[in-house]
Every structure is written in structure tokens, then in C-alpha cells.
Write a protein that binds this DNA or RNA. Structure first.
Lengths: 135, 135, 135, 135
DNA sequence: GTGGTCTAGACCACA
DNA sequence: GTGGTCTAGACCACA
């Protein structure tokens, strides 16, 4: 469910924060939905459980997640983050900015970057088309 | 010359590493070109000189920069990174990957992301169009 | 494990670089072997931890050491430096050269220098004879 | 007359100090003998004159050299450093120590090191034999 | 416990 | 002016 890159320079717990927020913002994780257990994530990514736990704790403090005695944590009933497209586009601002900064410093044209995004997307699942084909 | 974001989670010296590599890869910094002095960058971004110095030292160890006793550091004669478009597109892979990960988790469609890149680009200089319109 | 001389004119972190490389070249530090922790070395030699850390970081950049999140650094699986006698003799070239330069400028004869090396060696452990006498 | 290595980690002015002391200790530079001018040395080694000047000034402060208005500096009449073999052997102690440290860490035997010194000596002038053949 | 990042500040080597 | 070395100390990320 999560994709963690220990080499990226971004702290692992921060990568987790971002990804949980996005999954909620996108509606993939709906209010009440259970999160994978700390241990599960820790084993799968060969990361210390405390690191996962820290991310979950911060999200709980934010009101995004809820702790349930003896059961997996769940998405809070009314998390701050919400679903409208507008919000979701804002959640991705940082990544856009990083991309544009890199592109400009590499003297790439807009065309070249758009092509690259387009082509890279093809290599992966297209969430949009999946939505369309699911009904 | 550099754009540093202390909030981003990515260590400042790592942001510098990336940006210097890109400026060289794009040809904006040519072999022999001097880099801004450690102090200069430090003052401009209100960052400790040692942080800048660390980035420069690592780039020297990589063979990208050259030290000149008593004078500013310069781009190495034959830095590993070179200019061909192919290479430059590779330099931006990480940023593309980050963007796509975020987009998928936010359930954004390819269309929505391409539009966002397109529109955001308009807010800034377009190196490509500048090149085209200058003759 | 290390012998550091703050008076020698050679920066401390550089002395460390040399010594780690030698210990690996000699096989005393094998691939996977843990290095003494930054704090340990720092306390033992009354040196600032960052100085040790800097040496370790440069050796990591060189591919000689490997970082292990939360655990001591280790010798890389395939460090550039290897064990053959030939290589080890090369690692000592600088020291030989320094010695010969000094000897010539002091107008010492080869005999005098060889005697001095011979005699000085007696004051210390002779790794070779130890190897020979152990069976 | 001097052999300077800017890469060695040892400051250039310190290399100069050592070498002047040795040349005097060995009798190659006798009391009253002129030293090469600051400018001469600076040009020959592509080093800033201030660096040479600094070394000379320190040696003057030590009483090893004497300044002569309008003429080259000379070796002082009674420099501290003197000629007896005993003294000269002491002047080379640091280099011996560095060599032995490296040798032990590389697990080289005394035999191997003596051979290496012997062989390396052959590649260069042998001051001793020169002395013998000069009469 | 491990290493990493950053700061503030002193002082050095070199041009 | 340039960069380099080192310290003391705060705080972070991870096991």
C-alpha cells in the first residue's frame, strides 16, 4: 500500500505521512477504513516498527487517524483532508514544484516534460482509466 | 542561482547537490565556470557556510567540481554528467516518479496532471520558448 | 584501532581516511566488519564527533564503507581496495617517498636509513614474525 | 631545491619549513649560504609568494635564517639545527614513524618494508654514494 | 544505542 | 578575498 524509498533523503516517516494523506484525500481510504498494522508495514519494508508508529501517531495527533484499542487504526470520521478535486490538486503542489524546478535547471522545454510525464504514466496503472472501467 | 527550501524534508546540502548537477547537465554551468562562493550562497539563503561547503566537498569527491586554492571552486573539466538530452531526461526521473506516485495516490487522471504541469509552467519562465524566440 | 596525531599537520579526518583504507587493504577489516562508532572514536581521541563523521562520510562516498541506518557503519561488500600484496605495497608509497625525500635532504645513506627502520621496527610489534611464530 | 606536494594534506609552508631545516641539518646549506628568492620558489612551484615568504619568516623568527636588506636570505651563522648524525637521525623520526604505522596497518613484514626502501632508493640518487665519489 | 543535519564561531592556509 | 578544519552543542531519524 505504501512505497518507501530509504535513499530519497526524505525521512521515511515523512514519506508515510504524505502517502496516508493522499490516499485519504483521494478517497481510496475512506473514513473508518483500517490501516495496515504497524508490524505489517514494518516487516514489508524492512523498517523499524517505531518509525511506522511515529507516523501513525502524528496523523492521530492531527486528527486524521483514530486509534482503536486492540484493533487496527482507522481513518477518522471527519479528517481534515477532504476529497474535492481542488484539494487533491493542492496536495500535489510540492511535487509539481520540484519537477518544474528540476526541468528549468536542466533546460528542458515544457513539451519535453509533458511528453515525459505522458510516457511514464503509460508504464504504470492509470488511476483515471481504472475508475472509468470499473462500473 | 540556487533555490533552497529548508522545510522540504530534503537536507539542504542534498538540494544543493541536485541543483548543481542539473545546472551542469543543462550546460548552464560549463566546465571551468566558477561557482558562487560558499559565503555568498550562505548569506543569500541564510544558511550556515559549512552546509554549503559540505555539498561542494561532496561534489569535489565525485569529480564534478574542482577546488582552486584561494579561488572559487569551478566545474571540473570533464564532469561525469554531460549534456545530451537523454542524460538530462534521466536526471529528472526521480521528480517524475515522485509526481506520479502522488498523482496515483490522489487518484488524479493523467489528463489532470498534464494540465496541472502545463498551467504551472505558464507561471514561470519557459526556457524552451525563450530559446525559440530569441533568434 | 586508530592512531591520531593532531600536531602532524595532516588533518585528522585525512589521517583517518588513510588508516581505514589500510586496515581494509590489509584484511584486518573485512567486508561487513563494523567500524568503531563515531562517538567511540571521538571520545577515545578527544576529537569532535563531526570530524570522525566527516571521514566516514567521505569513505562512504568512495564506496569503501556502507551506512546502516541506526547501526554502526560497515566495510562495503566490495570495497575498491583489495588485499593482494602488490596493492598493499602501493598503499605505502607516499610514506616511502616522504622518508626518502627527508633522507636525501639530510644526506643520510641508504645503510643509515635501513638500519633506522630495522631498529625502530624492533621497538614495536612485528606483524610478520608474529605470523611466522604462531603455528 | 624544494619538492612541494600541494595534494599531500600537509600545508605548503610546513613542507618548506621541514625541507629547509633538513638541508641545513645535512650540511647542504651551510651558514651564510643564500636561499633561493621568494619569487623564484613561488614561480617554480606555481605558489603564491606569500606562502614562501611565510615559511622564510618563521625560520627567521626561529633564528635559522637571516634577512639581508636587498640580498637573498641566508642561513644563520649559528642556527639551532646542527650537523651531527645523531641530530639528523632525529630529524627523520616523524617520517619513520609514519612509515611504520602504515606498514603495520597494512600487515607488511619488516622484510617487505626494508626491501621496498632498498628498491625505491635505487630509483633515485644515493646521497651516500655521491658523497663517496665526490673526492 | 547508531549516524545525520545544522548552527555559531574560532582560526588556518592560500591568492 | 577564497575554501578548510575543528569545536561545542542542539536536535533529528532510525534500530
Amino acid at each position: 500500500m505504501f512505497i518507501l524509498n530509504p535513499q530519497s533523503g526524505v525521512p521515511i516517516y515523512r514519506q508515510l505521512l504524505d502517502q496516508v494523506r493522499r490516499l485519504i484525500a483521494s478517497g481510496r481510504l475512506e473514513p473508518g477504513a483500517p490501516l495496515p498494522s504497524v508490524r505489517e508495514v514494518a516487516v514489508e519494508h524492512a523498517v523499524n516498527p517505531m518509525t511506522i508508529s511515529k507516523a501513525y501517531a502524528l496523523l492521530e495527533a492531527e486528527g486524521v487517524l483514530e486509534r482503536n484499542r486492540g484493533k487496527p487504526m482507522t481513518v477518522a470520521a471527519h479528517p481534515k483532508s477532504q476529497i474535492p478535486l481542488r484539494e487533491r490538486l493542492r496536495e500535489i503542489d510540492d511535487e509539481i514544484e520540484q519537477l518544474l524546478l528540476a526541468a528549468r535547471q536542466l533546460q528542458l522545454s515544457k513539451r519535453e516534460v509533458l511528453d515525459l510525464v505522458d510516457k511514464s504514466w503509460g508504464d504504470e496503472d492509470d488511476a483515471s482509466s481504472r475508475r472509468r472501467t470499473r462500473p
